[in-house]
Design a protein around this nucleic acid. Structure first.
Lengths: 356, 356
DNA sequence: TCGATTTTTGTAATCGATTACATCTTGTGA
DNA sequence: TCACAAGATGTAATCGATTACAAAAATCGA
């Protein structure tokens, strides 16, 4: 069997370099990884041999011996979601700087795919794990924690002393969203959810209800439409919205995609945004600035979040945590743009009309 | 130094399992990787020991011995670009099925980051490489090919007998785009480019010029606006467009983002789409269906492309290539939507007006 | 039941680096 | 110049699996 058919290039081992330089493998190893431990003359000799032979250490062998893989696993719910892609970019920025590689664990929204990545961690292919998911992956009897690996939870707080959290302040932002809409005079609200089973969604909805209460309203003052974090959830919400007799005027969507889907559909039905209905999104994806009108939304500090998460993981791996590192919560920014405006109450309108 | 502080969980080695089951390590190994080679009774004994101890093989040791890492490197120009994210999803689908892991090489549009990934390949951390970039990464004196690893080039044809290509038919599609616009009566064209240095852009522009020629026009019949594959390129093109006295009416954009940026900007200036100007995009990102009007564009079979690329790489690794695998070219689909329509020539209009 | 054959299992080498420990050099001060 | 410390280098064990080869056990036919 020519399973190794492609292995055409002769591989140079550390022993080859040692022979070429007339030294032992130990010396070569030291030259390459312990600066200043070898005499200058020998050092030059070895480096010359390395250069001439084109030697590059076999990283698998290094890993076996040093027990460090210099790889990190990043588990994300869905890679094509721009939110996770952007976080991943931040993570990548930070990790590659420290010489770490990234192995991606894309769940593609199917939770059963977790098992594979738990296995990966358990089999020691990585030095640490970044969870962009809202829960700790488990694999039947075993879960990620059992690996004993450093884990950092992002995107949703996890209640475990051993696991640092690096998250955004969703709940506060969502609360603020309601406050903002109420401030514009809105009295009836709509909430377009994200994936109902995700902790992120729970956090945001909790913030929403808190906001509703804080503004002096109750559960009877809002409707909630359920669905995953995608465009079509907004479209479906819009269908339901259009069928209502007494429509809400202040809508909060748990992600920009569904906000955009909603707006697109209601505009088709000649509902005006923001004159007839105001919409606040969540995420601040690049696209939200290219819709008509431009979307009012909360911008997540995604890149910064990614960097922060990676930074904490590095510290965790190196046992260099400070108390502040255990719970990092980044703020969001409200981008007031074109899809929100003061309410035109029916009664207000009629009042006005009669007073004319 | 407590570098290993976190390594709290006792690690179980194959020797522990062997002792527990009262057999040799060779037997345990065979139970785990050579089905049917061990007597049923012994097999059960071993499996029970594995279960009881919770043993999971140390994959680094396996890799060192078998010389297969079961990892693949995917080099992409930019992860946050939804096109690459979607291709990656297809790759992931195919590879995880075969038990391979993915190490991501995100260039983030900075070519100097290549070196790192060439090194990765050279140090044997992966069994193969998928290039989503338009060129072969090089690292000073060494390039990816030197690694002797199986490489598959996607997104742009590479002229090397040893490297299979799995690409989409950009050029044909772009040609067709011009043909389509000409068929709608357009006589003056605009071309919004992508990153000028990328091979992908070259291919598309080549197709565009071929289309122009095939429709009986020449270089004087179109303008070209340059810029990277982003929204702002379209916005800048729009500024230039708006400043023209004799504006083109048929615009092709090398990616959906710039098409959308263009449309957004010209609409702000009260130019109507498609009545005043028709726009054809390229890619078919999810978002293109949520603009106003919906974007006419070419859909790339991204997921399929990813799967196909991964499939060819698997075959290459296993020396199982068939002649057809060396050059796969997937077709694109024209999605006729809202941003294109028949031209209203000035002379045509005046003609019509006078005949009324 | 015996020996030949086949099947199963064990022993030990191996993959390619790192590193503890031993040994050899070099440098220093008296 | 010598004794001794400090520094440089070499030897060989080690990481944890796989696997070639050897040895033992099971199977079979006569």
């Amino acid at each position: 069997m020519s399973r190794k058919g492609w292995r055409s290039v002769k591989e140079i081992r550390i022993a080859d370099v040692a022979r070429l330089a007339g030294v032992s493998t130990a010396t070569v190893s030291r030259v390459l990884s312990e600066p200043g431990k070898v005499r200058q003359k020998t050092h030059d000799l070895v480096m010359e041999a390395v250069r001439r032979s084109g030697y590059i250490p076999n990283s698998t062998a290094q890993k076996l011996r040093t027990r460090r893989t210099m790889n990190v696993l990043v588990v994300a719910p869905r890679l094509t979601n721009p939110v996770f892609a952007e976080i991943l970019r931040g993570v990548d920025d930070e990790l590659t700087q420290s010489g770490y590689g990234i192995i991606i664990g894309n769940l593609d929204n199917r939770r059963e795919r977790e098992a594979r990545y738990v296995e990966l961690a358990l089999s020691r292919q990585v030095d640490g794990v970044l969870l962009l998911t809202g829960y700790i992956p488990e694999n039947g009897t075993r879960d990620m924690r059992e690996s004993g690996l450093p884990i950092v939870a992002m995107c949703a707080a996890i209640d475990d002393d051993k696991i640092p959290n690096v998250v955004v302040q969703d709940r506060e932002a969502t609360r603020q969203a309601v406050d903002y809409l109420a401030g514009l005079g809105h009295r009836r609200f709509g909430y377009i959810s994200g994936t109902p089973t995700s902790i992120i969604e729970h956090e945001r909805f909790k913030g929403f209800r808190e906001g509703i209460a804080a503004a002096g309203f109750g559960p009877e003052d809002f409707v909630r439409w359920e669905g995953p974090f995608v465009f079509s959830t907004g479209v479906a919400a819009a269908e339901s919205f259009l069928a209502m007799k007494d429509r809400p005027t202040g809508i909060f969507a748990a992600c920009d995609e569904s906000a955009i889907g909603f707006i697109k559909r209601v505009r088709e039905a000649r509902v005006r945004v923001p004159q007839d209905v105001s919409v606040v999104g969540f995420d601040g994806i690049e696209f939200s600035d290219f819709t008509e009108p431009t979307l009012t939304t909360f911008r997540q500090p995604l890149h910064e979040l990614g960097r922060a998460g990676a930074d904490v993981l590095m510290k965790l791996i190196q046992n260099a945590m400070t108390p502040n590192d255990w719970n990092i919560r980044l703020p969001l920014t409200l981008l007031e743009r074109g899809t929100t405006g003061p309410v035109l109450h029916k009664d207000y309108k009629s009042l006005r009309r009669s007073s004319l």
